[in-house]
Nucleic acid binder design. Sequence first.
DNA 1: GGTTGTTTAAAACACCTGTTTTACCTTGAG
DNA 2: CTCAAGGTAAAACAGGTGTTTTAAACAACC
Lengths: 222, 222
Amino acid sequence: MAPSITTTHDRLLEAAGEVFADAGFREARIRDICARAGANIAAVNYHFGGKEGLYRAVLEHAECHAGGAVALDAMARLDPEDQLRAFVRGFMARMFEQGKPAWQGKLMVREMADPTEALDRVVERIIRPHWELLVEIVARVAGPGVDRESVELCAASVIGQCVLYRNCGPIIDRLSPGHRQARNDREAAQATIERTARHIADFSLGALAAMRARARADGGPA
Amino acid sequence: MAPSITTTHDRLLEAAGEVFADAGFREARIRDICARAGANIAAVNYHFGGKEGLYRAVLEHAECHAGGAVALDAMARLDPEDQLRAFVRGFMARMFEQGKPAWQGKLMVREMADPTEALDRVVERIIRPHWELLVEIVARVAGPGVDRESVELCAASVIGQCVLYRNCGPIIDRLSPGHRQARNDREAAQATIERTARHIADFSLGALAAMRARARADGGPA
DNA sequence: GGTTGTTTAAAACACCTGTTTTACCTTGAG
DNA sequence: CTCAAGGTAAAACAGGTGTTTTAAACAACC
């Protein structure tokens, strides 16, 4: 990181965002963060009171830069099906992209795999908005005949498919070599993500269509 | 653990199995393992050469007790659809059950979330057999018109849905309170697992049916 | 210009965790 | 009984990590 543009406080925040997003809270080393920020180790304690304080600050910072991802309005004109496609694509992108906008997604997934003290805050501020949006979309796709519990199970199914690729990359690479995510080739990686997102959306839409049809068959004539 | 029934070597292996399965390799503390085994800390190094050696020994031990879970033969008489249901139910059970038979499943999922040096071994000896079986089942359900890559993506979708509930329990509890997994009430937990497994199987079967229909529509007339 | 409060830097600290050492105990053969 | 070998126990060790201390550099103000 360029140590010239901002204050130590801000450089620390920036560097911590990257490191926490990539390594998670526990595996992140504050010596590493400080090295990237060109700051002294004691600076973390001085400015943020400790590693946890720094993590909380990064979360707050990430919340501000949430962007318009969690906006149903932006997709209001789309079919529910296309809304789901857009959601999955956006969700996947957030998990794999590089740069600041992706922090939120990565931190979210990290907190899923390995919760910290800040779990409640992360759930309420970051995860729940995404979740509510997805549930809303799934409910529309599934149609009115499907009860809330089933809708939530379906939403969880969608999330599960997405998260797998983030958390189990090494195993997927070994099991399904053709799917190897070219880590260095940005374009190839992007294409793989795109393809995977399309599969997840299609898979889920197929499932939801079946569920809708079944609900109609069950509930309609009754 | 009862320190009376076996040798220190075996008690250590037993205790390590539990702790590694529940906490994962990194989070497991050998002091904790030794306490459960009623053994001295130095015993780990004496008998297994270190924490990693102990982990490898546990894996070997778990491989022997694989049981007949990875047997397509046992389900040969079922429809492919019921084979998938059986697979999902068995997979979920392995991840959540308590006791020795569940080690393998838990270690497998742990290695997914947080790989160790033994990843290659775990993949080849434990994960791949399950994977090949699942791919085989999915291929049958999807029918001959679906290519291998799509089948593998679908298999990954199934696994992703299952693994989510193991790795993201705390978040699911918070997002979907109705689904709360009663940790202490064995029966309620069992019922929840059963219900979730049924959902995952139905969801996936719906998706695969749609995919099969589409493949037939695309490929048949062509 | 001196003083005061803020920020930075280097080192030391305390804690946790896997490992090693050292001595002791138990056992079984000769 | 003696002694050698394998196993066990307690303590010390070494490496890494977050934190604290101490002093120095800097900036703003009277």
